[in-house]
């Protein structure tokens, strides 16, 4: 239990660190710590697979993309200049959203108060939740993904596929942008010069 509180403190502290830093790379490091602490939290719940995937996907892929963009866009080490102060404009909506979210949380916690696990523990596909190698393990995750959750899984895959095709369309075959207000006939793909020439054999 003390491990939970330790990780929770790290989680919240790193989240605050992430949003208060001026230098974007410090924010990335804060977010990295945050993701790792969350993964550790999954490990304490015996949800190995969830924890590992949390690291591989979020830290390994998504956050790495952030680092890439930051490294390429701000090659100097200096922090970004502060923009206009937008706090007064967003204070009221932010406060409202936070209160509603907290309301839901407290409502949810009040439904099932803290205490020992109920006598009839919820079961997952491979056994009782909370036992090692059951909930969140590789096998359990796989069974859930390909039986009960098959439709959401396929829909997500489809959405990602659409995104991939969109990216290839945008990046792969750059159409020269016509200047505004003046009509310029576009060349067909075959007539255009290739952006990257294939290396000579």
């Amino acid at each position: 239990m003390s491990l939970f509180y330790l990780l929770a403190v790290i989680l919240i502290a790193s989240a605050i660190f992430t949003i208060t830093q001026k230098s974007p790379v410090y924010s990335v490091v804060g977010l990295l710590v945050n993701f790792l602490a969350l993964a550790a939290l999954y490990f304490t719940l015996n949800a190995e697979f969830l924890g590992v995937i949390q690291i591989v996907i979020y830290s390994g892929a998504i956050l790495m993309l952030f680092v890439f963009v930051i490294a390429l866009l701000s090659s100097g080490v200096g922090p970004f200049r502060a923009g206009p102060n937008r706090l007064p404009r967003i204070a009221a909506p932010a406060l409202l959203t936070t209160l509603v979210a907290f309301g839901f949380l407290i409502f949810g916690i009040a439904q099932r108060p803290f205490g020992p696990l109920p006598p009839h523990r919820p079961t997952s596909f491979l056994g009782n939740v909370g036992d090692p190698n059951v909930f969140g393990s590789v096998g359990d995750f796989g069974v859930a993904l390909f039986t009960v959750q098959l439709l959401p899984f396929e829909v997500t895959a489809f959405i990602l596929m659409v995104a991939v095709i969109g990216v290839v369309l945008i990046a792969g075959d750059a159409v020269p942008q016509p200047t505004l207000g003046r009509h310029r006939p576009q060349k067909r793909a075959a007539e255009r010069e290739p952006i990257l020439k294939a290396p000579a054999p």
Binding site: L32, L36, F49, V52, S59, G60, A61, M64, V67, I70
Partner: peptide, 22 residues
């Protein structure tokens, strides 16, 4: 989840290189 943990650690290890370069 043995082999997956190794992949996870390797993917964190890349940060060492990219942060060093930056």
């Amino acid at each position: 989840a043995g082999i997956l943990v190794i992949f996870a650690l390797t993917s964190i290890g890349v940060y060492g290189i990219s942060l060093a370069g930056w």
